[in-house]
Design a protein around this nucleic acid. Structure first.
Lengths: 208, 208
DNA sequence: GTCTATAGGGCGATAGAC
DNA sequence: GTCTATCGCCCTATAGAC
């Protein structure tokens, strides 16, 4: 049976798929850092990973996608957190709680996030894709808020506000990873509340 | 001196075929409506416009771009409105005023907006580009708010809130173009204020 | 796995407006 | 004559069809 163990080890490494996706992602990130995103070809990535172009397409829809694997877990996680938040909380409170809790979990699991962010920051094309991924967050939040009972329009607006808060908090947290993520969510929410409370109610035209 | 006035008018217009860009846009929109965005090739567009594929590249960076011409005017217009808002207004008030005023102007000038929106709605690729264009709005708002004296972090958050309000208002306005755009901005702002006022101030851990 | 269509862009030539 | 919008043919890499 010894050769079975050997077989198993061989299967893990070579071109036969097991770690194919991971290897592609690693190879891609390395190359993007070395040469810049634009000048890297898919062929280079697959070559470094010891795979073929065709295999790349099996795992990723396009070149951009290789940097965003795993990001599809964030929207459902946030939605779940919103839905399962205490019923006594207002929609906005439920939203903020969900952001703080979920971000806390997720923030730690981002692999190589610093390098990844550097690559994205240098490429407009990747920023575009990042916005798309983030739009899924907004959509998921909107659906979750509706499920909690918010009307569609209100849910959409609140979801966008939530996305804004999350993004802002995430950026702050990226600069100071030691502070808890949820603290930054609270900061952003507080900041927002302050900005709004200084508002005089917009008067209708003609009204004094 | 009459011919001087005529000369001046001619010089203002491009010499060759003044309408090359317009024709390309029109041809593109028509074809997108007929066949769907994906199945239209750039060659088809240029053919219908009586131009060549190469000329297309002169006016638009890529196929998506043909639907977003003119959108580059919105960010500076909003920024200008924010900056020139009454100094007595709070940042948030200035922001909302700017959104209401500028949107009012711009909303009317969108050509073929219904058809354009239909095409975009049907294509994820175009939605992605739309988000990018809209990101420029957020950036411009953030810079303008900083110029008014907001700190960077606060300006960024507020700008995102502004973008959320603008987008929400725009969608509502698209459904009911007869109502003024600014009314929808006020509605969204009011909705937001209501959502926030039901919030119990987030307490720091341990605080009663 | 292989092959093709097509996007995207570089360069030089051309031809119409001044 | 200059200027410049347009064009034709080049190339490569991507994405999708077979």
């Amino acid at each position: 049976m010894t050769h079975c163990a050997i077989m198993a080890r061989i299967v893990v490494m070579p071109r036969w798929d097991p770690r194919a996706e991971d290897r592609l992602r690693d190879a891609a990130l390395e190359l993007f850092l070395e040469q810049g995103y634009d000048s890297v070809t898919v062929a280079q990535i697959t070559e470094r990973a010891g795979l073929t172009r065709r295999t790349f397409s099996r795992y990723f829809t396009d070149k951009r996608d290789v940097l965003f694997a795993g990001s599809e877990r964030l929207p459902p996680a946030l939605a779940e957190a919103v839905i399962s938040a205490d019923d006594a909380l207002s929609p906005f409170e439920a939203l903020m709680t969900a952001l703080a809790d979920t971000g806390e979990l997720l923030a730690g699991s981002v692999t190589r996030s610093a390098e990844r962010r550097a690559v994205i920051k240098a490429s407009p094309e990747l920023q575009e894709r990042e916005r798309t991924k983030f739009a899924a967050v907004t959509d998921a939040l909107a659906r979750a808020l509706q499920q909690r009972g918010s009307a569609e329009a209100a849910a959409t607006l609140l979801a966008r506000i939530g996305a804004a808060v999350f993004q802002t908090a995430f950026e702050c947290w990226a600069d100071q990873p030691d502070a808890g993520f949820s603290a930054f969510v609270r900061d952003a929410a507080a900041e927002l509340a302050t900005s709004l409370t200084t508002v005089t109610v917009p008067a209708a035209p003609g009204q004094a």
